[in-house]
Design a protein around this nucleic acid. Sequence first.
DNA 1: GATTGGCAATAGAGATTAACTATACAACGT
DNA 2: ACGTTGTATAGTTAATCTCTATTGCCAATC
Lengths: 305, 305
Amino acid sequence: MTLTDLRYLVALARERHFGHAAERCNVSQPTLSVAIKKLEDELAVTLFERSAADVKITDIGARIVAQAEKVLLEAGQIKELATAGRDPLSGPLKLGVIYTIGPYLLPHLIPRVHGAAPSMPLLIQENYTARLAESLKRGDLDVIVVALPFEEPGIVTQAVYDEPFRVLMPAGHAWEEDAAIPAARLAEAPLLLLGAGNCFRDQVLEVCPLCRGGEGLQRTLEGSSLETIRHMVATGAGITVLPSSAADPLPEGNPLLTVRPFEAPEPFRRIALAWRVTYPRSGAIDVIRAAILGSPLQGVRPVTR
Amino acid sequence: MTLTDLRYLVALARERHFGHAAERCNVSQPTLSVAIKKLEDELAVTLFERSAADVKITDIGARIVAQAEKVLLEAGQIKELATAGRDPLSGPLKLGVIYTIGPYLLPHLIPRVHGAAPSMPLLIQENYTARLAESLKRGDLDVIVVALPFEEPGIVTQAVYDEPFRVLMPAGHAWEEDAAIPAARLAEAPLLLLGAGNCFRDQVLEVCPLCRGGEGLQRTLEGSSLETIRHMVATGAGITVLPSSAADPLPEGNPLLTVRPFEAPEPFRRIALAWRVTYPRSGAIDVIRAAILGSPLQGVRPVTR
DNA sequence: GATTGGCAATAGAGATTAACTATACAACGT
DNA sequence: ACGTTGTATAGTTAATCTCTATTGCCAATC
C-alpha cells in the first residue's frame, strides 16, 4: 500500500470509471487497474464491484476510501509544513548569549532581528560560555554569542566584532588624571572581578598578569554581574574593567563613575557567533550577525572576515 | 514520498542513529540513508543534522515527523478497516422484498438473520419488482426477494422456494363445498386483484386466462395490499387468490374466511433471491437464504438447486 | 600529531516493482 | 450474431529500491 495506490483509489471512487480515473491520475488504465487489484489483494477486501455498466464502490470500500482521503490530506500537510519551514527566517531561533554581553547587546538586537525576520521569534538564554557550548552541542540552542577563543568539535565560529576593555573607577579617583591606563597598573588597585565561569573574568586577569595568582588586591564577586560591580565601583568599593559596550554609555548619565581606556596595546575581546557545523539555517545566522553589527555598541570594531 | 519513507523517517527520529533505525526497519543503513536524503531533497528541507557525535532532528524536521506519524496512524486505520470489513456478515445489508412477501416473510426472517449474523443489520425496503430491480442495479439494494421469472443483465437469481396459490372466499361461500377449486372457475366470481405493478397480480391473471382481458367480474384495487383485500373478502366483497404463506395461517383465527387449494395442476409462484453478479458478500446471501428456508412459511416447498 | 574506530554517504550491481503498449475477455445493446 | 464499451491480462521496458562494499569524515586516543 503506497500513497500512490491511495490516490488511485480515491480517483476511482470519484470517477467510478477506471479509464477516467486513470486519466485523471495521468497513468494508463491498466496501471490503475492493477494497482486497485493489488490493493484489494493486500487488504483482502473487495473495494469495487466492476460490471460492464459501471463501477460501484462497496460498503467497506467507501469507508476505506474515506480513510484514504484522510491519509492523503495528512500527507499533503507534510508538504505544506516543508514549504512553510523552508524559509530559514521562519520559526523560532534559540539564541544563547554570555552574561557579559546580553544586557548590552540584546536591547538593540531584539528589535533589529524582529524587524529583519518578523516570523523568527528569539528564544534567548544567558549563561556561561561552557553552559552555552553544552546546550549548543545538545541542540538546545541554535546559535550562541561568545568571546573567542572558542574551540569545540563540530562547532564553527565566526568573529563579529572586537571590543576594547575599559577601566571603570569612581569619580574623583586618582587615575582620573590620566587619559589612558597601563594594564599593569591594575594590580595596584582593589580590582572587582566577576566569579569563576565568566570568560570575561579570565580575560581581565589575562590583561593583568600580576593579578593572576591572586597576589593583587582584587576581589572576586561570585554570582555577581557587571551591573552589580558597576554599582559597587560607584560606591567606591574599588575599580573594575568593563568591555566598552558596558562602560562607554555610562559616564553621561552617571556622575559617580569615570571611564578610562587602556594604554596601547589596548586589551580587547573578540566576540563571535558559534553554531553547529550541521546547523541548516545559515540565513538565520546571517540575520543575527547583521543585527549585531547594526547595533550601536560603543567602542566596538566590526571584524571583516 | 512514500509511506515507507515516512516509516524510515519516524524510525530515525526515534533512534537518532541511522544504523539502529535501519535495523528497526529491517533494511540496511544505506537504504535508510538514501531514503532520508531523498525525502529531504523532495521537501527541500533539512530534517536532520548529521554529525559524527549524533543525529539531531531539526525544528522543522520534528514537526514533519509528528505529521508523518499522523499519516502512518491514519494509514494503519485502513488496514484495520479492511480487517473489520473482511467478514461478509459484518456491516448492514440492504434487502429488498416485494409487497406480497414482505409481511409474511419478514417477521420470521429478521430474528433468524439477527441470530445468524448479529453484526449484519438489515436495511429493508418493500416495493414492486421493477423498483427493486432498479435499486438493486443502482446499488441501493444488495439483495432482493422476488418472484420468478426475473431476468436482468448483470443480476443473478437463485430460486428459494415454490409457493402454491390458494383461493380465499368468505365463510359460507358456495365453493366451500369443494375441497379444491379449478383455476378456470375464477372467472365466475368477483375476483379482487392487486393494482398494476404487483407481479402477483399478473401471476393470478395467468392462472385464469379468462380473466385476462378484463372480461370477467374481477376488480382491481389500486394502491391496495393483500391484507386489505383479505379484509374485503371477509366482508363478502368477493373472492381472491393468495399465496399460501398469506392464506394458510388465516382460517384458524378468522371464522369469516375460508381457504381452498386449487385443483391440480396447482398454480404456484417461485420465489428467488437476486443480486448483482459482482456483489462480493456471498456469505451474506447464504445467510439470507438459510433464514428464509428456516422460516415457517405455510405451504411452501423449498427449491433444491 | 598520527592513528583508529564509529558512523554516515556514496558507488555499483542486482532485484523488485511500476509503468507502458498491445491484446484478450466479458457483457450489453443493436 | 456482431460491434461496442470497458476492464483484465501479458509481456516488455524503465524506474526505483535495496543490497554489499567502500569511501570519507570526525573526533577521540595513544
